[in-house]
Every structure is written in C-alpha cells, then in structure tokens.
Simulated assay, not measured.
Amino acid sequence: MRASSLAAALFAFLALVGSTSASDPDLLQDVCVADLNSTVKVNGFPCKAQFNATDFFSNLLVKPGNTSNAQGSIVTAANVLRFPGLNTLGVSISRIDYAPGGQNPPHTHPRATEIVFVLYGELDVGFITTANVLVAKTIKPGEVFVFPRGLVHFQRNNGNVPAAVVAAFNSQLPGTQTIANTLFGATPPVPDNVLATAFQVGIQEVQFVKSKFAPK
C-alpha cells in the first residue's frame, strides 16, 4: 500500500475510533426506557418491560428556573434520571438560566461534549485547554458555542437582563464536577494542607473557603 493510501486509511480508522468512543455506547435495540427502580446495577440502567409515549416526552425546560442563589444561575437538566426514554440513546439536554451578573461557574462534564444555543441575553463563555489556554467568546441569541468533553468551562451573564441557553450533550448522563464544590465541599473533605499547597495560600484561607461550601 502506498504511503499516502496508508495515511488516509489510518486517518479514517482514527476518525472512526474517535466517533465511537466519544459518547455513550451504541444501543442494541430500538428502545430501552430506564427502569429507575431496578436494583440491578449495570453501566446505565436496565430496560423497563413496558413503555409508552410519556417516557419519551419531557416539559422540564418549558419554564425559566429560579436563579435566586449565590451563583445567580440554575441548570434544569433533562437527563436519563428525569427523562427515562433517553436511556441508551447517548443524548441529553438542559436549560440554563442566568440572572444579570449570574454565572455557571467553572466545571467539567467527564462523559460528554456540550453545545449551547442562546435563547436570549448575551453570555461570556469559555473553556481552558490542558495547555492552560483560555478559549473565550461573547455569544448572543441564536448563536452556539461548544465545550469539548472533559475541559473546564464556564458561562457568565455580564448584562443587565436575564439570559438563557439550551445545552445539548452526547451522553444520557454527562456528569458535572464544579471545580470549587469538588475541591472545597467534598465529603470526606480534601485535606487542608493539600489545598493550601495547591493554591499557594495558608491553612486559614483554605478553611474559610471550605466554610462557604460545607455540605448542607
């Protein structure tokens, strides 16, 4: 095989591998509505014996969420835990609402890439690569922005009016790790000296920040 043909075949193979490993596993039947009450533990959820149209419908995203909290934002998630028909389909969706000045703080989704579509308002968004490069932009109604799987990212409403986006994921249950909550609100707690060294601050500063994220 000529070198150019070999390179093309290798590229095609890598593209195929990437496309098959970047989201949830393929389904093996038409539908598998999640049985959230099953005691069987699998990578996902077992299938219900009976299903109907209601399992494939959700009105979770119809109304704006309550943004009266410390971050000034709220994520309304329609993932498999609240939308059982998504089981094995490799997709989920959320609505994120932001008060003026509100933000969805730095976080990651370990199991999914995220793409957001702006419903209204304007947002400053960005993600950070593993080389510590910030990729950021301001997005407006009708525009979209994508956050690669596993990378730390954020959205912030710097405007004077509310904003909202619809976020789509290539996983039925993307998972979310908010950086501050993960480090300062874990149970059991991350040792103070670990965080003090990581952030180059004193133990007292770490304990003060931890007090803000103490489990309710």
Rank of each mutant, 00 (worst) to 15 (best):
M1F: 06
A3F: 07
S4L: 14
L6Y: 12
A7F: 12
A15H: 12
A15T: 13
V17Q: 02
V17S: 02
G18C: 09
G18A: 11
S21R: 14
S21L: 15
S23W: 12
D24H: 08
P25Q: 07
Q29E: 13
D30P: 08
V33T: 07
V33F: 07
D35G: 10
N37Q: 15
S38W: 01
T39N: 15
N43Y: 12
F45L: 09
P46H: 07
A49C: 03
A49L: 13
N52M: 02
T54I: 11
T54H: 13
D55H: 11
L61A: 03
V62C: 12
G65Q: 06
T67E: 04
T67Q: 04
N69I: 01
N69A: 06
A70V: 10
A77L: 06
A77W: 04
R82K: 13
F83H: 02
G85D: 00
L86G: 01
N87G: 02
T88C: 00
V91E: 04
S94Q: 04
D97E: 09
Y98K: 09
A99S: 09
A99W: 07
A99F: 05
A99H: 00
A99R: 00
P100N: 03
Q103I: 15
P106K: 15
H109I: 08
A112C: 00
E114L: 03
I115D: 01
F117G: 04
Y120T: 03
E122Y: 11
G126H: 08
F127C: 10
F127G: 11
I128C: 12
I128Q: 13
T129A: 11
T129I: 07
T130W: 00
V133T: 15
V135Y: 08
A136K: 07
T138I: 13
K140W: 11
P141E: 02
P141R: 01
P141D: 03
E143G: 07
E143V: 00
V144P: 04
V144M: 14
F145E: 09
G150I: 03
V152L: 14
V152K: 13
H153S: 08
N157M: 05
N160V: 11
P162L: 06
A163Y: 00
V165S: 00
V165Y: 01
S171T: 00
S171L: 03
P174Y: 08
P174I: 04
T178D: 09
T178V: 12
I179G: 06
I179V: 14
A180Q: 06
A180Y: 04
T182C: 10
T182F: 11
F184R: 08
P189A: 10
D192H: 10
V194Y: 08
L195Y: 00
A196S: 09
T197F: 04
F199I: 10
Q200H: 15
Q200D: 15
G202M: 05
G202V: 11
G202E: 12
I203H: 11
I203K: 05
E205W: 02
E205D: 14
E205C: 10
Q207L: 13
K210F: 01
P215R: 05
P215Y: 03
